[in-house]
């Protein structure tokens, strides 16, 4: 890595002040596991990094209440993985954690970083989106709330201004809903996914009352698949229904080609895996 400056403010407010809305070369760093990859690859050459590691402790931690979980943006993925509250209120998140990157990255990477990075291959965003998570965002003008599904605008792009930081994620309790996340790799079993599909279902027996379905990795951004949801809502699960949901999902997704697969292939994967994810959720086996 080539030289840069490092600032370590002790408050979120101070961090926001150090960020410059017009300077691409100043960026916040939380765990740094994703940002450092970009720096090493020369894709991002910072003049200055603003570390969030020393900001107020209240931004690292998980609190459960009647309406779900409040997860501080600086909470590590490892803390999420181990949290009894997360396991109780959002078991699909706990299950997802095990397949997410590796132990060392989870020990360092943060929830806020995983969301703000805007990388469509990350596993956590689609799952939190399917759960209907909401973000608290802090900027120079104060706080605002944003549904997570409105965060991503494109490939590594979000609605965040360069001097805005995610401070907290609110995850509604999963309750009796069934959830699954399927990470589909196409080469080595441990790879970034070629496709991620997250589903959270309000179901009664074999009948789906309402579904939230999110596709990721194969697409330019984690995307809520509303047409697929419409197909599923109010129906009883069978092969025909799931195929119809898969067909609907691919129509509303914007696919990307990369070393993990061509666009036509990723379309076929999604066509199959939307149904498999629904089945896995119904059976409670989804990873």
């Amino acid at each position: 890595m080539i030289p840069f400056e490092l600032a370590e403010p002790t408050s979120l407010a101070a961090a926001v002040k150090l960020l410059d809305p017009d300077d691409e070369t100043v960026r916040p760093i939380a765990g740094g596991t994703a940002l450092m990859l970009m720096m090493k690859a020369g894709v991002f050459r910072p003049q200055k990094l603003v570390s969030l590691r020393k900001i107020e402790a209240k931004y690292s931690g998980i609190a459960a209440s009647g309406d779900g979980l409040r997860i501080g943006a600086m909470t590590t993925l490892n803390a999420v993985e181990r949290s009894a509250d997360v396991k109780k209120h959002a078991p699909v998140v706990t299950r997802t954690m095990r397949t997410l990157s590796n132990v060392r990255v989870r020990n360092v990477a943060t929830v806020g970083g995983a969301l703000a990075h805007g990388d469509p291959h990350m596993d956590l965003p689609p799952v939190l989106m399917a759960l209907g998570a909401t973000l608290t965002i802090v900027g120079p003008k104060g706080e605002r709330k944003l549904p997570l599904e409105e965060l991503f605008t494109g490939y590594y792009e979000t609605v965040l201004d360069k001097n805005e930081l995610i401070s907290e994620v609110h995850v509604p309790s999963q309750g009796a809903k069934k959830g699954a996340y399927m990470k589909v790799t196409t080469g080595s079993a441990d790879d970034w996914p070629a496709l991620g599909v997250a589903v959270v279902l309000d179901a009664d027996g074999g009948a789906i009352k309402s579904a939230r379905v999110v596709g990721s990795a194969a697409t330019t951004k984690a995307t809520r698949l509303k047409a697929a949801e419409t197909v599923l809502n109010g129906k009883t699960v069978d092969d025909k229904l799931l195929k119809a949901a898969g067909d609907a999902a691919i129509e509303e997704s914007e696919f990307i080609a990369d070393v993990r697969g061509s666009m036509p292939y990723k379309r076929e994967l999604m066509r199959v895996y939307v149904g498999r994810a629904v089945r896995a959720a119904m059976q409670g086996t989804g990873a």
Binding site: L37, G187, S188, A189, D190, W192, V259
Partner: peptide
């Protein structure tokens, strides 16, 4: 070369 990294050029791991 479009995949000159271990993130994009995968080698066998335990799960393979």
């Amino acid at each position: 070369v479009t995949n000159a990294s271990l993130a994009d050029y995968k080698i066998p791991g335990f799960h393979d």
